[in-house]
């Protein structure tokens, strides 16, 4: 401590070999995370695939920083001032005795800022996952030879956000590839599930053995991993989806079955609203039938006429969401609400 008051001050030196450091400005939540007793590992991912190395103008691949469940866009800010990183060192100059010195060991001309990024993990996943479609017992699907982990590595979002979108799409792994089921396949698997539950006296709202029902569905010719994917998608919020037990959230399930049925019919002939409601009710456990009302799938359908119904086009929905997200809530209407709800699930 004597050194600081010493008239001679604190010697400042510059290392001849500067080190390479980056300075990252930390938002409070990241600072908190890093300073916790057992901080989690973070990762830096790339936004888009780059062109092969050696290309004169490789496509920009913006970097993002990911925590377990959040994503931050990295921005590089040039500083007009020089920022030096210093480290204490014992130095002796001009044959004087060694003194504690502050040594510049790195010089930074830019700093990095972190900005929260809300990417649409679901749309990225939809692009990367081939559709798994079963028609009349025949599987129609193109293998992508990619595991869930390698798919997540290709999306510049946190694993938590990818996982959420993965569950949202009822995606599943099968024989080294990953897929998302078509609405019609989902609809069939659900029917098979519902029938199996009825036959076995399983109440889907209470705890049941995941494997038991999944096996019954597999016997119908569906992938063994698909039924558990549906259970995860429809699990109660407090349900541990990694254990051997499942239990479904009634509200989620009723709405999911309705939307799936409607999407499965998408592009087909006119669908009478009354027929749809009947099919919907018939696809649900007896006790849930009364829940099948249009208001539980608000935002997911159009009524092209007074007696017919159809699913809202997914592409239109996606485009809508992209365009409207940055706008104020007032102009986004129910689409914004629907996507907001989906995200929170």
């Amino acid at each position: 401590m004597a050194t600081q008051q010493d008239e001679r001050g604190v010697p400042l030196s510059v290392a001849h070999e500067l080190q390479q450091f980056r300075l990252v400005e930390l938002p409070p939540e990241i600072a908190e995370l890093l300073e916790a007793p057992n901080p989690p590992a973070l990762s830096i991912k790339s936004q888009a695939p780059s062109a092969p190395s050696g290309t004169p103008n490789p496509k920009a691949a913006y970097a993002v920083l990911c925590t377990q469940d959040k994503t931050f866009q990295l921005r590089q800010v040039q500083t007009s001032n020089s920022l030096f990183v210093t480290q204490p060192a014992l130095e002796s100059h001009a044959s004087e005795p060694s003194v504690p010195t502050t040594r510049v060991i790195a010089s930074c001309t830019a700093t990095l800022e972190l900005h929260p990024a809300d990417g649409a993990a679901a749309s990225s996943l939809e692009e990367l996952l081939p559709i798994y479609h079963v028609v009349g017992g025949e599987v129609d699907a193109t293998e992508n030879h990619k595991s869930k982990a390698s798919i997540f590595a290709d999306i510049a979002l946190s694993d938590g956000q990818c996982e959420q979108a993965w569950n949202e799409l009822v995606a599943f792994e099968l024989a080294g590839s990953s897929y998302r089921p078509s609405a019609s396949t989902l609809s069939h698997v659900w029917s098979s599930l519902n029938a199996a539950a009825l036959a076995e006296g399983v109440r889907l709202e209470s705890q049941f053995q995941t494997d038991h029902l999944a096996q019954l569905v597999e016997e119908e010719g569906y992938p063994a991993t698909l039924a558990p994917a549906i259970f995860r998608r429809l699990a109660k919020d407090d349900q541990d989806t990694t254990g051997p037990w499942s239990s479904l959230d009634r509200t989620k399930a009723v709405s999911f079955v309705g939307k799936t049925l409607l999407e499965a019919k998408h592009g087909g002939a006119d669908y009478l609203t009354a027929d749809f409601l009947d099919a919907w009710k018939d696809s649900l456990p007896e006790a849930w039938r009364t829940d099948a009302e249009l208001k539980t799938i608000a935002g997911a359908y159009d009524l092209p006429s007074s007696s017919t119904i159809r699913a809202k086009s997914k592409t239109a929905a996606a485009t809508n969401a992209e365009i409207t997200t940055p706008k104020p809530v007032s102009s986004t209407g129910k689409w914004h609400e629907r996507f907001g709800k989906n995200r929170k699930k």
Partner: peptide, 27 residues
């Protein structure tokens, strides 16, 4: 620690210097 300057520190080349650093001043 961080030290910010408006500008850059220049100093003579550390030619043949056995030292790992050059003293440029004091705080």
């Amino acid at each position: 620690a961080l030290l910010e300057l408006q500008g850059t520190i220049h100093f003579p080349p550390p030619t043949a210097s056995p030292l790992p650093s050059t003293q440029v001043g004091k705080l």
